[in-house]
């Protein structure tokens, strides 16, 4: 029976609770109710006291987790939606992220952030926050795109002594399936060549990896183009070596992301390639992101707000034609 991306998140938490007494879960509605997306379904029953409901207090949720982490616990905080982490922003970037540098005491905190858009979710249940947190020193930011990565990277995040922002894509929760949770053992910090090619490189992460693969399929059929797709897996640290090696093979770069276009991960990818691999480029590097508006509600608007296989193809055709 196939397993889904959300199964991986639940099973990883189950494994962590079973194997590490320092792990506990804290978040809104995650107890008996099992969480807004059922990522913690049945876990409170199995681990009473270690799966705790929190009041609607995102700031205090992260504050509590930081205090517990100072005591040596490994809290996993579920933000109900990544969008609401704006309320906890101060605790994440000022309390958790600075602590190790200032005091030498690390904060093994994992913040699960249900990220990205789904049809009809609108401006406040669709955001991609990875760039915001990656900007700050002291935080690891991961963006799994596969079922196996969702599983292994959550375990790795919790075992990491630093604060980790774990961006899980809501669109992938039930849509993305696999035979099991077994992966290739890549650690956080290493990107993966999801599909190899020689004509252009698409660097993507999270749900956009799948859109990039679809676009690559279309262009393969259309003109025999071989598009290489690099899945960043973690946006911080960013595996610049794998990106540069890919661009060395293809000479062309499209940096793809679902987040807003100003700054951010795709801009960082382009800036690194230009700064460290300018001589490898046969065409000006391109970026494709969401539009510079809040994420719209209506499915028709939403579908055009974010990059799609079609818009990725448009960008790639332009890149290949240069």
């Amino acid at each position: 029976m196939p397993v889904t991306y959300i199964d991986a998140i639940r099973e990883a938490q189950l494994y962590l609770l079973e194997t590490d007494p320092d792990v506990f879960l804290y978040g809104q509605d995650i107890g008996e109710f099992g969480g807004a997306f059922k990522a913690t379904k049945g876990l409170q029953e199995r681990f009473p006291g270690r799966v705790k409901d929190a009041p609607i207090s995102e700031d205090a949720m992260i504050g509590v987790a930081v205090g517990a982490a100072i005591e040596g616990m490994k809290p996993i905080v579920e933000m109900q939606f990544a969008d609401f982490s704006s309320i906890a922003f101060n605790q994440i970037v000022n309390q958790a992220a600075t602590h190790y540098y200032r005091t030498g005491v690390s904060i093994p905190l994992t913040v699960r952030m249900p990220s990205g858009g789904t049809p009809g979710s609108g401006p406040f249940h669709s955001q991609s926050m990875e760039s915001i947190y990656a900007h700050y020193p002291g935080i690891v930011v991961v963006t799994p795109a596969t079922v196996a990565d969702a599983y292994s990277m959550l375990i790795e995040s919790v075992q990491c002594p630093d604060p980790v922002v774990y961006c899980e894509h809501k669109f992938l929760y039930r849509w993305l399936k696999a035979e099991d949770f077994k992966g290739d053992g890549l650690p956080i910090g290493k990107a993966r060549i999801t599909r190899s090619g020689k004509h252009a490189t698409v660097v993507a992460y999270s749900a956009m990896v799948h859109e990039a693969v679809r676009a690559a399929d279309i262009l393969q059929r259309e003109g025999g183009w071989e598009i290489e797709v690099v899945d960043l897996r973690s946006v911080k640290p960013m595996d610049t070596d794998t990106i540069i090696a890919s661009v060395a093979r293809t000479g062309r770069l499209l940096a793809l992301g679902e987040a807003f276009p100003w700054g951010g991960v795709s801009a960082e990818v382009v800036s690194r390639v230009v700064a460290e691999g300018f001589h490898l480029l046969d065409a000006p590097p391109m970026r494709l992101n969401a539009k510079d508006t809040p994420v719209p509600y209506h499915p028709k608007l939403w579908a055009a707000h974010r990059p799609t296989p079609e818009s990725v193809c448009v960008a790639l055709r332009q890149l290949l034609a240069y």
Partner: peptide, 20 residues
């Protein structure tokens, strides 16, 4: 940290960890 009121929940978390 300089952000006022931010330590209240941190102390709470340390106590919750001790309780666990």
């Amino acid at each position: 940290i300089s952000h006022l009121g931010a330590a209240v929940s941190v102390v709470a978390g340390a106590l919750m960890a001790k309780r666990l």
